[in-house]
Design a protein around this nucleic acid. Sequence first.
DNA 1: TCAAAAGTGTTTATTCTACACCCATGG
DNA 2: CCATGGGTGTAGAATAAACACTTTTGA
Lengths: 234, 234
Amino acid sequence: MTRYPGQKRFLIAVDCIIFGFDGEHLKLLLIKRGFEPEKGKWSLMGGFVQSEESLDEAANRILRQLTGLEGVYMEQIETLGDPERDPVERTLSVAYFALIDIHQYETHISGEYQAEWFPINKYPKLIFDHSNMVESARKRLRYKASLHPILFELLPEKFTMPQLQYLYEDVYNATFDKRNFSRKILSTNLLMKQKDKDKSASKKGAFYYKLNKRRYNDNFDSFLKLIPNPDHLI
Amino acid sequence: MTRYPGQKRFLIAVDCIIFGFDGEHLKLLLIKRGFEPEKGKWSLMGGFVQSEESLDEAANRILRQLTGLEGVYMEQIETLGDPERDPVERTLSVAYFALIDIHQYETHISGEYQAEWFPINKYPKLIFDHSNMVESARKRLRYKASLHPILFELLPEKFTMPQLQYLYEDVYNATFDKRNFSRKILSTNLLMKQKDKDKSASKKGAFYYKLNKRRYNDNFDSFLKLIPNPDHLI
DNA sequence: TCAAAAGTGTTTATTCTACACCCATGG
DNA sequence: CCATGGGTGTAGAATAAACACTTTTGA
């Protein structure tokens, strides 16, 4: 089993940056760490990689433990390996981000982790280098979303154009002209207009849209010029 | 030292995808693996992470071992962790790509690794999952180079506009109109035209350019629309 | 009836694309 | 003197940006 002699072996953690969208703001799901050191402090949801699982499997397992969700959009971001990053024992951590429909999580009760959603612009101090991971994840999300339609992963099955615009505006911390925005979105042909309206946010009501899943999958990799001036990609 | 009981620990390797440009084609630097298993087969340059070094330090050490170069542009790409990826013992590998000026390497002699440059479109079968790493690296290079001026890292201090265009054409496997290309490149204001010419490729000679390093560093993160239609980003 | 949010078109500015000829030189 | 690769400009097309009024309806 152990056949490369003389080499050091390390603990490997996977930590998940879990994004959600509540209709107004991009949110981050954090837990209170359940063991020492730093017990009780705010932390990303994470866990150690087990001997027979791949990294992707570990990330999915960890997400499922907290949220009960499967089949979620996840992407590996980076691996942090500073020798001093965990004071107890040298541990490398592979960071993943996950995009979930916040409403599906809300139905799942898991008091075990004392999880809470925080606005992405105002989250508490985190343990170790977890804040760095969050910032890398935000940056990666902007990068990716400027080219690919991944932000739909954060929305429920039916959503309105104003909701979608709020989402983009919060991710890029910018405001867009609603006429230009909806024209661009609709020009992708990824959306199917529904007959019913969401009347929760206004008297007039806003039409629902659904994602055309086939076109979404087929065109996922093709370039989308949704973001006018991606200086935000810094 | 070991204080998270009951968890498995793993070997961690760093493997480097080393890109170079010979004036015509994008190249990949490979070595012949020096130890079992798969001894003598083509492989990326790699090594195990030591107990007191960070991942970036390991990557730089490994690059230096092979090429003698320091201060090279490197970027972490991804970590592969399939339980079966190394048949000897479970090993995670953190892949980095490096962009080097091929001429600086040519002066460094290191027969130790039997290293060779291969065209990126025609490299031999590699051990383990190293081909996957190379393909991820190519994709990442295209991604990054479509937004940031990193390809200059592959060129010598002085280079010509035709050389630069060949480089972009080979990275994106496309051809560009030379008038439009040079207009776009010059509009970034990153280049300083020199008074002398490279006469090695034509009778008329092509003017040399140098990178304006200050502007390069200042504007590194700002958006560059160098690639007309980034369908290549797939 | 009016406040609040949704929906919609046009004009202008900017950027991108396509395209062809002259230049300089070494052999 | 000519073959080879280097260098340059413009017009038309496509895309992006700016901008304001009408509609709906619950309270």
